[in-house]
Design a protein around this nucleic acid. Structure first.
Length: 459
RNA sequence: UCCCCAGUAGCUCAGUUGGCAGAGCAAUUGGCUGUUAACCAAUGGGUCCGCGGUUCAAAUCCGUGCUGGGGAGCCA
């Protein structure tokens, strides 16, 4: 007999008769005549109720079933006379695969997120975390679906990179030198290292993506990214996933159009395909989520320049901890004011002063600002960071010189501006931040299966 | 890294002015019931985060370290 998953069972209109299910017991209630068990198999939020009668030959064993126990059950799928579920299984056979002893850390009651983080290997067995990671899976799929439909090519950028100057924060060094090698040489001799030079984990696939955009046209990378920043916040982890589209023959406007289309597509996909899991978050995590989803889906995102944003902030009469002035990098309190209070919807901020942005962003005609764009979202802050890239070789070289960047490691990057250079643009979208946005989860550690943060690499 | 808060039973937490360590849930045992955060009763369960100090006496006050949370910076 073939196994049926619970997400299929609970949606049936008519009973197929006998069914076979496999899963884990979430809770059990006993009576003298029979036991009620709720089984979950991870396929959906819902459990299936199983009724085990005391005439089953292993009923004594069944009475010993505990929360967390894995089972294989055969029985008739019948309409449930009880409230709360359409179907239940009248078991004709209950096979215990593995009994969970009393030390099983998950109880029927609600646990705190902080506690569940200490048992990250077991937390996907809870309703909330099961839902989070099903949504995460579905959203990863939706990203590939969106880009395939738009004719983008998927690029896997290298995770180990040779340059230490991608300019997006502290990097993790990759080396095969042993501590004793280093001690003997008195230093890290990279010429003796695996790659013959210093190597690091990537902080962005952008530079690779640019090369492929200038070859395949429209591409995207979607994969892990690493930052060795000592960041201790609810919005940062050392290893996270980033989506980075890069488009040839695209300017800043096109970049924003694309970002807005992407976000709206992913939100619509979530609402359509993760309805049941999302309902948990709507009910128990953040009651304002449906409103935010509606805003994301149906309202045009605001678009304004950094300069205009500064003016709005100056005129706001808000008491900010950090004073607003042209040339400063916006603080989170400023970004939150713009997205949450002033516009009350996502905001694209463009054209930042060149001094606070990296070398590869395209110089605007005013020679003061660059064609950067950040998407600020209520509660999350920066969801997207990107730019139109500097495609003019002379301008690019000037900027690198101004910022004291060595040219040699970038010879290949500069080559792309020598041979058939075209305007192009792209951005990075933090996958985990997107998940936080649509689930209302407030700590990024709770949307990552096994989060890596300063001082924590368990599991 | 900086600022603030917290750490007491397996979990969530209470603990008064410094004076015998507590509750709910969970677990175990029994009872009862088409139950559904089931219900009722009994039982077991403690390095009060670690170290040092003040005191006749410290979960409680002081110092310090560790861990966790919130905020900031950095960014996605």
């Amino acid at each position: 007999m073939k196994r049926t998953k619970i997400n299929i069972l609970t949606r049936l209109e008519t009973t197929p008769g006998q069914v076979l299910v496999k899963g884990w017991v979430r809770t059990k209630r006993d009576s003298k005549e029979f036991s009620f068990m709720e089984m979950n198999d991870g396929s959906c939020l819902k459990n299936i109720q199983i009724i085990a009668n005391n005439n089953l030959d292993n009923y004594l064993e069944i009475q010993g079933i505990t929360t967390g126990t894995s089972l294989i059950v055969i029985g008739d799928l019948v309409e449930s006379p009880g409230k709360g579920q359409k179907w239940e299984i009248q078991a004709s056979s209950v096979e215990i695969v593995n009994l969970a002893p009393e030390s099983y850390p998950l109880q029927k009651k609600r646990h705190s997120d902080e506690y569940l983080r200490t048992i990250a290997h077991l937390r996907p067995r809870t309703n909330k975390y099961g839902a989070i990671f099903r949504i995460r899976s579905e959203m990863a799929f939706a990203i590939h679906k969106f880009y395939r439909e738009k004719g983008f090519k998927y690029l896997t950028a290298p995770l180990i990179t040779g340059s230490d100057c991608e300019g997006a924060g502290e990097m993790f060094r990759v080396t095969s030198l042993s501590p004793s090698d280093v001690q003997a040489a008195g230093k890290m001799d990279f010429t003796k290292d695996f790659f013959g030079q210093e190597a690091n984990l990537t902080v962005s696939g952008q530079l690779s993506a640019e090369m492929f955009a200038l070859s395949l046209g429209d591409v995207y990378t979607f994969g892990p990214t690493f930052r060795a920043e000592n960041s201790n916040t609810s919005r940062h982890v050392a290893e996270f996933w980033m989506l980075e589209p890069e488009m040839a023959f695209c300017d800043l406007e096109g970049n924003m159009d694309h970002g807005e289309e992407l976000v709206k597509y992913l939100v619509a996909h979530a609402l359509e395909f993760c309805e049941e899991d999302l309902s948990l978050f709507f009910q128990f995590v953040d009651k304002s989520l449906p409103g935010l989803m509606d805003t994301l889906l149906n309202q045009e995102f605001a678009r304004l320049s950094y300069t205009e944003a500064i003016k709005i902030l100056e005129k706001s009469n808000q008491k900010f901890e950090f004073n607003v002035a042209y040339g400063i990098d916006l603080q989170s309190e400023h970004e939150r004011y713009l997205a949450e209070q002033y516009f009350k919807k996502p905001v694209f901020l463009t054209d930042y002063p060149k001094g606070i942005k990296p070398f590869y962003m395209r110089m605007n005609d005013d020679e003061k600002t660059v064609a950067a764009v950040d998407l600020l979202v209520p509660r999350i802050g920066e969801l997207i960071g990107g730019s139109q890239r500097e495609e003019r070789l002379d301008r690019l070289e000037n900027r690198m010189e101004e910022m004291n960047l060595p040219r040699d490691p970038y010879w290949w990057y500069l080559d792309s501006r020598k041979f058939g250079s075209v305007p192009h643009a792209g951005f990075g979208l933090g996958f985990e931040r997107f998940l936080m946005m649509i689930t209302g989860v407030t700590n990024i550690r709770d949307v990552v299966p096994f989060p890596r943060t300063p001082g924590n690499v368990d599991f």
